[in-house]
Structure formats: C-alpha cells, structure tokens
C-alpha cells in the first residue's frame, strides 16, 4: 500500500542535508509552509539555498531559518517585504548571497526543472542589469535572454487537503508558487490542513497530482 503520510512534522523534514537547495512555496505569508520551515530550522541545517518569491517576514518560517544562521543564499524576486527584518539585517551585513530573478523567470526556471528543460529564452530582463553575463539570442527580430532551470533538492509546500498518495488541493490564492515548487525538486514535502481518504478529492479537483509529492504531513491550520 502506498502511504506517503508522515506521523510527525520532524519525520517529514528528516534527512534534509546541509547545503541543500530548498524550493519554498508561498507568496508573502499566503501559502508559506511555516510548520515545515520551523521544523527544518530546529534541525539547525547549514549553508542552505532558499528559492522562494520573498525572503520571509517576522521570526517564523523562512525568517526562523535566517535567524538560525541556516541560509547561505537566496534566489528570489522580491526579498524586501514589510517585516523582512531578519533578511534585511543579514543582507546589509553581507552575510547572505542574493540571486535576484524576475518573478515570471523564477517560476519558469523551476517549472523548467520539473519539465526536463535545462534552459529557455525569454524577453524578460533584456537590456536590464539582470541580463548581464547571460547569452542573448535573436528570434524573429527580437532579443531574448537565456535562463537556466533551478533544480531543487527538496520542495516544501503548503496545501489545504492531501491524501496518502500525495494528491493536493489549495485554498484560494495560497496556491501561488506551491504547485510549481512541487514539480521542481527531487523530494517534495507537503504540509496539509486536512488528510482525506483516497477519492476524497475528486480527480477533476486535484491541483498537484500525486506524482509530484513524496511526503504529506497534517498540520493544524
């Protein structure tokens, strides 16, 4: 019997190694897998690369990883948000690396990793500082920038409902980056508000199909 359900949050994040590239779902606090991130921070990993739209806020979730000295590098589109004090302070002290990526390029680089596409060309960032050092190629008279896929070791996502196969659904705009992150990593771990029996999610309603998910843990919403 296939059973991806973990009994505790510690089991869910066990085995994540120092230096791992971690894809984290969420946009601001909506859809941020706070419980998984806090459990990961408690393991005191080192030298992590965090790939996420924002760089956390407050002292929970990504903020807790930063405060715990667990993060070496961020790849994100908008690190500065209200309450991103942990990030701001360490960045200004030169203790965090930042690879700034336009938001659509960020999503596509992760989707590309999940779809077996090592790189792609996009108009976004042409003639801007974020295209510096990257290959530019002309298609039909317009310039495009080559961007490379971001392969995650682990993805941490938050969903509303999951089952033992790993099918997931989300609540409103908390879906955001979560299904994308789930595609782009070797291991995807989902915290869900509710676990239902197989069939409890109608096939038409499945947003992230089980093939992209490895572990599911129930976390009280």
């Amino acid at each position: 019997m296939i059973n991806k359900i973990c009994q505790g949050i510690e089991d869910a994040v066990a085995g994540i190694e120092d230096g791992a590239v971690i894809l984290v779902g969420g946009f601001g606090n909506a859809g941020e897998p706070i419980a998984l991130l806090n459990a990961l921070a408690a393991r005191k990993p080192r030298e992590l690369t965090i790939v996420s739209n924002n760089a956390g806020s407050g002292d929970e979730g990504i903020g807790q990883l930063i405060l715990g000295g667990c993060v070496k590098k961020f790849i994100c589109s908008f690190p500065r948000v209200t309450g991103a004090d942990a990030f701001d302070k360490m960045y200004e002290e030169g203790l965090l690396e930042l690879e700034l990526t336009p938001q659509g390029t960020l999503a596509e680089r992760i989707r590309a990793a999940g779809a077996g596409i090592p790189g792609f060309y996009t108009r976004t960032s042409v003639d801007t500082p974020l295209a510096e050092g990257k290959e530019v190629r002309e298609f039909a008279g317009l310039d495009y920038v080559l961007e490379e896929a971001i392969y995650g070791d682990v993805a941490l996502v938050k969903a509303a409902v999951g089952d033992r196969w790993g099918n997931l659904t989300y609540t409103m705009s908390s879906r955001n980056f979560n299904p994308v992150m789930a595609m782009g990593a070797k291991i995807t771990i989902a915290q869900v508000g509710e676990i239902v029996d197989l069939g409890g999610i109608e096939p038409e309603q499945v947003i992230t199909p089980s093939i992209f998910v490895d572990k599911v843990v129930e976390v009280e919403a």
Binding site: Y91, E92, T101, Q103, G104
Partner: peptide, 16 residues
C-alpha cells in the same frame, strides 16, 4: 542604497 534589490514581476510585465 544598501538595501537588497527587489524586482518582483515588473520586468515580466514591461515586455509581456
């Protein structure tokens, strides 16, 4: 500015 750069979706929208 000392603070980190942030771009969000602006570059995608500018051409898209």
């Amino acid at each position: 500015t000392k603070s980190a750069p942030a771009v969000g979706g602006a570059m995608d929208l500018a051409y898209g």
